[in-house]
């Protein structure tokens, strides 16, 4: 396990803050959007793109790159923000979020540099990730595949088909991360169709599982540095997060799963996020 200095961790926290500002910027441009699940994922995305994933923004189709699939495609504002920050796409593209014929709609499009799969229909990403991980194995390549899944999304049965298969195949080059913010579109997950005991479910399905605080950068980085958690098994990181993290009025409420972003709300959000401008 590598030790990460406090300066490195602070750098990643700053990256996450910039992702959140980017999310609000994009969704203000859009007029509305999925603030909650984008902001809950920001810290993990910062650690992935600026610490863990081997990618080349200047060569997005580099064959040996690590693959990241955002199965919870409605958090595309966060993906776009991190891809812009990493240099895959231009930052001012965020101002065209939801725009007419824009490459950035509500959900990721594989035609955008850095986007590995068009997602949005829930319960798709993990199967696609299995295919990518198999592609690496069959071609003798050592790239890794990471799939971020939403919690409500796990109500889709296709995830559990994929969970069984990935374990059967012993895909240690595959990692899934659940952004467990506990809230879905219409209510809390536990009041809709409960997932708990979530870690036990994944262990029972044959995965190595670790639970982390998805907003504690040291924990997130340490978990990513520990991959694969065990040899010959796919790894599951259950990241406990807060929906809408970073802006007080948007936190931990289903009302901010998706909501309108007016100029007043945008200014309040940026003030809380310490907008340098």
């Amino acid at each position: 396990m590598t030790s990460n200095t406090e300066a490195q961790l602070q750098g990643l926290r700053d990256r996450a803050l910039r992702i959140r500002r980017g999310v609000w910027r994009a969704l203000y441009a859009a007029g509305s959007g999925h603030v909650g699940g984008s902001c809950s994922a920001a810290d993990v995305l910062a650690a992935l793109y600026f610490h863990h994933l081997r990618v080349r923004p200047e060569q997005p189709d580099w064959p040996e790159r690590d693959r990241f699939v955002l199965s919870k495609g409605h958090a595309n504002a966060a993906l776009a923000a991190v891809l812009a920050q990493a240099g895959f796409i231009k930052e001012d593209l965020l101002d065209r979020f939801y725009g007419y014929d824009s490459p950035l709609g509500m959900h990721p499009d594989i035609k955008v540099a850095g986007v590995e799969m068009s997602t949005g229909g829930l319960g798709h990403g993990l199967s696609v990730g299995i295919g990518m991980a198999l592609g690496a194995r069959l071609q003798g390549q050592d790239f890794r595949t990471c799939v971020m899944i939403g919690d409500g999304e796990l109500q889709e049965g296709s995830n559990w088909e994929a969970a069984m298969a990935a374990a059967q195949m012993g895909l240690s080059n595959l990692t899934a991360i659940v952004d467990y913010n506990k809230i879905q579109q219409g209510d809390r997950v536990e009041k809709t169709v409960d997932l708990d005991p979530l870690a036990d479910k994944w262990r029972a399905f044959g995965w190595a599982v670790r639970e982390i605080d998805g907003h504690d950068m040291a924990e997130v980085v340490d978990a990513l540095d520990s991959l694969p958690l065990v040899p010959d098994k796919p790894s599951m990181l259950i990241a406990h997060t807060i929906k809408g993290k970073g802006v007080s009025f948007a936190e931990d409420t289903y009302l901010w799963h998706s909501n309108a972003v007016t100029v007043e709300i945008y200014k309040q959000a940026l003030a809380e996020l310490g907008d340098p401008e």
């Binding site: 799969m117 199967s127 696609v128 299995i130 295919g131 592609g135 069959l138 088909e161």
Partner: peptide
């Protein structure tokens, strides 16, 4: 044997796996 992926009775997963394989340059 290595190139026959048995997804089991799980067509949704089989189709998604095929897509992921194709992105890596395989012909599924």
């Amino acid at each position: 044997p290595d190139r026959l992926i048995e997804a089991g009775i799980a067509e949704q997963n089989a189709m998604g796996i095929a897509s992921g394989l194709a992105t890596t340059g395989m012909r599924p």
